[in-house]
Design a protein around this nucleic acid. Structure first.
Lengths: 343, 343
DNA sequence: TAGTAATATGTTACCGGTATCATAAAAGGT
DNA sequence: ACCTTTTATGATACCGGTAACATATTACTA
């Protein structure tokens, strides 16, 4: 029953007959170590399966090499683009040899504030990336008050004083709506996202402005809310279809709802785009795989992740101005949209 | 430019005119502190916004109060039930005042092994919950070799020696298939999950056994693979529909594929369940919201999370036997399935 | 070959808490 | 009033590393 002794840096130093400082130098690739000493130590490390105690390392270095991503798990499936952003984040985190942890925040943010910020105050993490917080986020408010370093992802709207990366929701939506108008559509439906989210509001604003700019009145009966969810997009579309003056084109504030809408259209024995043109937003993976492939507004999601992570890691909050980065969106024209044929 | 001094336990002790030990006692609710002293210290803590350095606490206590959940982000959307499991985990984690971090593992597991296990070796986490690893998981293999504490969630199949929680995939699938058979169906299609996953194989085995037990031959042309993905479920169903002898019932190995399948059926102008009965597996949120609501096999996902987390937190690996817990599944009969009418 | 620079290693203090043991003060018992 | 408990607080060492500085060794230069 030999107790698996705790192997520390001292163990290795002793076996190697050196001071622990030399071992530390080997661990950190310091140049001033004789190659013979180095290899001896390395083999001992292997032999004893030594792993440095990261807690001790962090305490000593007074830094953590870790950042946290705060997300609302419940939203995971409506923030469908999540994985791509995450991949962007991970890329940066890898490049800097950082670590990433993911922390959950519920819709009762108040209860989570303490738990989450203590990761920073307790010196566990250098700062936070906050994914798409609601406009009135208590968490963000508290973080700002307490000078916690953070970068918001996709929530430029309500937090002008803080660092954020976001995409041109307004312009993207404007372009999409304008595109439909240019195709001859005058009766355009809109399936909106959740009103508490800034991006959703911007997209709606862009849509409305495009119509306004071309003197097309917005029929309020053609604007319905789908909260970014597929099944609610389906429901919303059904609602649009029973309108006395059915729209000839529909713009959904995200692809997931567009997908639901497409299903509803098909089930009503109508065709996309012959009877109804359909445009989405996000360009999620499945957008191109739908039948017909979905015309949509593409966001540079991967880059959203890299930029946010890069800033958080590179800049310490005292010495730099907040990051305000808004990336362009691009209209991807596929086969779900076409010129208006019927009246 | 007053530098925001680092507030430590010593700062508070000094201001309070006590030793830092007394402050430490206050922080940890030790009874032997005069209430006057306690309240004085508490007010100073508040005044100076003192937060204990968790890194120091952990180093001193030689423990971390943190567990990690390892998931493959890429799978996030096929492991749809993820959020419910997560909520179960978080419940336990909260109860024990633990912390949870989520770590990503890619499909190139080899590259992640070191990064992930170092969270344990570096004393950052007490152990791991591994969500639905592939059957030949390198990560799990290495963890076992290195005596890293972990609990697998939903992967009992390939890892008999390790701790796991899982559900009765085999029995659940058997029940579903048997149910369809009892409804008079003899021509039953099966949409399978990814063959590298144990649960998918068990579900297929249960399906096959039910047919075997009732002397119904399995038509291999009616078994197609959909890899747990919605759009592949759609494709798979289309394939089943062009078979010379169309199935009168289809069992999909998860709800997501069942959903895709339902779409395919509707688009082919057939009706569920009149023309084809449809049964899924998982009972995800949307299952009940489909039109018609989906008959499916419900898994106790929340409990899967609580049990796994509870075991990992409560038991240290040396002193206890591995956990082998298999929770029952339940057939939820809704409206997507009915007696066979036509031949 | 001494003198200086570059390389290699060691010493000490410190990061910010907690555990353990010692000691002081207050409370209780006779 | 004296002794024993209980309560309250302090002193010291320690957790496992790293930073900064000191010292020893080797290599190069004139």
């Amino acid at each position: 029953m030999n107790k698996p002794e705790n192997i520390t840096i001292d163990t290795i130093a002793e076996k190697a007959g050196t001071s622990k400082m030399t071992v530390s130098r080997v661990l950190n690739n310091h140049p001033y170590v004789k190659s013979k000493t180095r290899s001896k130590i390395l083999s001992l490390i292997k032999k004893f399966k030594y792993h440095p105690n990261l807690t001790a390392v962090n305490l000593s270095r007074q830094s953590s090499q870790t950042i946290a991503l705060v997300i609302q798990y419940e939203h995971l499936f409506t923030t469908y683009y999540f994985t791509e952003i995450l991949q962007g984040i991970e890329k940066m985190v890898d490049e800097y040899s950082y670590n990433l942890v993911i922390l959950n925040v519920t819709s009762q943010e108040e209860e989570d504030v303490e738990r989450i910020t203590s990761w920073y105050f307790g010196k566990f993490v250098k700062g936070f990336l906050v994914l798409a917080p609601p406009q009135n986020s208590v968490l963000v408010k508290k973080m700002r008050e307490a000078d916690v370093p953070f970068v918001l992802i996709g929530a430029s709207g309500g937090f002008k004083g803080s660092s954020f990366v976001d995409v041109e929701n307004y312009t993207g939506a404007y372009k999409a709506a304008k595109y439909l108008i240019d195709l001859g559509h005058k009766h355009i439906g809109f399936i909106a996202g959740p009103p508490e989210r800034g991006d959703a509001r911007e997209r709606e604003a862009g849509f409305r402005q495009a119509l306004a700019d071309t003197k097309i009145p917005v029929a309020e009966s053609l604007v319905v809310c789908g909260h970014y969810k597929e099944d609610l997009g389906y429901q919303a579309m059904l609602q649009l279809l029973i309108q006395p003056a059915r729209p000839t084109a529909v713009f959904a504030a995200n692809d997931l709802m567009a997908k639901g809408a497409m299903m509803a259209i098909k089930e009503s024995n109508l065709q996309v785009p012959k009877d109804i043109s359909l445009v989405g937003f996000d360009d999620i993976d499945t957008a191109a795989q739908l039948v017909p492939p979905l015309t949509t507004v593409k966001q540079p999601m991967f880059r959203l992740g890299t930029e946010a992570a890069n800033f958080l890691i590179e800049h310490n909050p005292e010495d730099s101005k907040p990051l305000h980065l808004v990336l362009p969106t691009e209209l991807i024209i596929r086969e779900s949209s076409s010129r208006r044929w019927h009246f």
